[in-house]
Simulated assay, not measured.
Amino acid sequence: MTPPPFDRELADVLETLRALRPLLATLDDIPARRELNAAEHRTVEELAAAYPVYKVAEEYAGHVPLLVMRPEESAGVLYYVHGGGTIVGSHLGGDVPNLLAWAGELNLTIVSPGYRLAPEHPYPAPVEDCYDGLLWTVEHVAGPLVVGGVSAGGGLAAGTTLLARDRGGPAIAGQLLLCPMLDDRNDSPSAIDLDGLGLWDRTANNVGWIAYLGDRRGTEDVPAYAAAARATDLAGLPPTFLDVGTAETFRDEVVAYASRLWRAGGDAELHVWPGGFHGADSLVPEAAISRAARAARLTWLRRLLGQ
């Protein structure tokens, strides 16, 4: 099959980005990728200086560190899980500036968990860390609660939301799943057709899932809380926003998840951005398609929160 083309503005910078972020091939590549990502990490003090309209602190839910950024008047909370394939990244990392560039308009308190990373801490450690952080959040921050995340963080957000449903709480107003990593089987047409292309391909995706699940990856012994696409019942979930690019590995699994939410009677809004590659809106923020993606999220959140 012929893969879809990249958006013109995105294609112009893709090769430069690939040189800076080479595709993962094996588990042995993880240390180098972590070193690369570490350059994007900020201290709490640096974040406080960069965003003076927030009261910035690092709190703890047991052993789980939480970045907490409170505006002067909070209208609710966005519990946001960072990306990184479950193997790299930090709650103090590069997701924060991009997140605040669009979510900052809503006067939401941002809480971001520093979950433990695979392969040192495979399933269920990362998603249980996210759930523990969620429990802390509802105890310490008032207002409607939206659970969200990007890439692996989107997958962990979906798993955390399923845990909250099945454990009887806490109540979640909505889930915001941005190009989420949902299916360990990694065998959709988009995963196959786009292998070797973009910034996160099928091969890299296998590295992330193997680190997270080990020998369970791709078998029938994978719980829905590890890979939300495995859930047999999607009823009773909160309103959901999903977005993904046409030119990325996760396209078909995200579209399938949205379709299954609708079939279960759920409220879901899906955006499939033509020519978008994985993480494009944060990496090429000035592209027209990136601006449209952020605007769509804001519109959904405003409607959800009654702003």
Rank of each mutant, 00 (worst) to 15 (best):
A125F: 15
D129V: 13
C130R: 07
D132Q: 15
D132W: 07
G133N: 07
G133W: 02
L134R: 02
L135T: 05
T137Y: 01
T137Q: 00
T137R: 01
V138K: 04
H140P: 09
H140E: 05
H140M: 09
H140D: 01
V141L: 10
V141W: 12
V141T: 12
A142C: 09
P144M: 03
L145E: 01
V146A: 00
V146Q: 00
V146G: 00
V146Y: 00
V147D: 04
G149N: 02
G149M: 03
V150G: 12
S151T: 08
S151D: 13
G154D: 12
G154C: 14
L156N: 06
A157Y: 03
A157K: 04
A157V: 04
A157S: 10
A158G: 14
G159H: 06
G159M: 09
T160S: 05
T160Q: 04
T161S: 12
T161C: 13
L162T: 01
A164L: 14
R167I: 00
G168A: 02
G168S: 02
P170N: 02
I172Q: 02
I172F: 09
Q175H: 10
M181L: 15
L182M: 06
L182E: 10
D183I: 12
D183P: 14
D184W: 12
N186R: 07
D187M: 06
S190Q: 01
A191C: 12
I192Q: 15
I192C: 13
G196L: 10
D201C: 02
D201S: 08
R202G: 10
R202K: 13
T203F: 08
A204S: 15
N205I: 03
N206W: 15
V207I: 14
G208A: 11
W209I: 10
W209L: 08
W209N: 10
A211L: 09
Y212F: 14
G214C: 02
R216A: 05
R217C: 10
R217D: 04
T219G: 03
T219W: 03
D221I: 01
D221K: 00
V222I: 07
P223D: 01
P223A: 08
Y225K: 02
A227G: 13
A227L: 09
A227Q: 06
A229V: 11
A231E: 07
A231F: 07
D233W: 06
D233A: 04
A235R: 11
G236N: 11
P238G: 05
P239L: 03
L242H: 02
L242C: 09
D243C: 13
V244I: 07
V244W: 00
T246F: 03
T246K: 00
A247S: 10
E248R: 01
